[in-house]
Amino acid sequence: MELLISTMMQGFIYALLSYGVYITYKILDFPDLTVDGSFPLGAAVTAYFMVNGMNPYLTLPLALLAGAVAGLATGLIHVKLGVRDLLAGIITMTALFSINLQVADSNLAIERSIDTIFTAAPTAVLGDLSLTYKKFIISLILALVCKLILDWYLQTKSGLLLRATGDNDTLVTSLAKNKGSVKILGLVIANALAALAGCIVCQEQRAFTSTMGTGQVVFGLATVIIGTTLFRRLSFVKATTAVFFGSILYKICIQLAISMGLPANLLKLAMAVLFLLVLAAGSWKGGAKKHA
């Protein structure tokens, strides 16, 4: 039971990253690899500032900002310098690896004496629940709040334009809008969310490690595809909701594999295989699916 709660909590936190990948991959049709760098960037910034005594809640907007800058970099490289989408992401991701090392070295632990968003004073309102349950509730709230904000945003004029840009950018140009700016905006939002996920993961495990970004794009893509494929027939389910459940389901699958004796060193292999299975299943069921 404890294990399930903690696995679901992982799913909630990583759902933030999935929302980000949903924006770039599904809405903008932009395969953004920056996420492998912006996720640990959020964690590195968080670890650095918390070790130096910053309030844990203040690290949330700070991580958002750091991720936004990373997304901006990829966006500018792609739009202003005309570098292909995939390569633009790879450039930023590679650069961020070094930047993260500069910020927080290869490992940076947050000691037990430092309060995180899960243990700081305001969590007292949750009473004397155990830490696992507090983490569960707080990360659920964060995931739902971000989902609602994102849902609201996608219904605004700006959000409508973002969806249109991924759908038909010729039309966006015909409407006298700069499609480049819209793409940059989408990348900024997506990477801000990825960094926020990194920030919360860092606080949850009380550590930053330089390799924690590896495979996050694959995770994000897999959850988006699992979510949207599973709920494809149910049109009343919002895509963000589908992605949210995709994230939880994915974490449960991985946890099951570990529980059944999968060595931790094979984890990324298992992630890749799971992703492959999801893609293959999608193209079987959906017939000729364009992006699968």
Binding site: Y153, Q155, T156, K157, G159, L161, L171, L175, A176
Partner: peptide
Amino acid sequence: SLADQKGSFCGLGRGI
């Protein structure tokens, strides 16, 4: 609604 936005700024007002 999108076509209606031609010539005006796409901010955070309701899309529709």
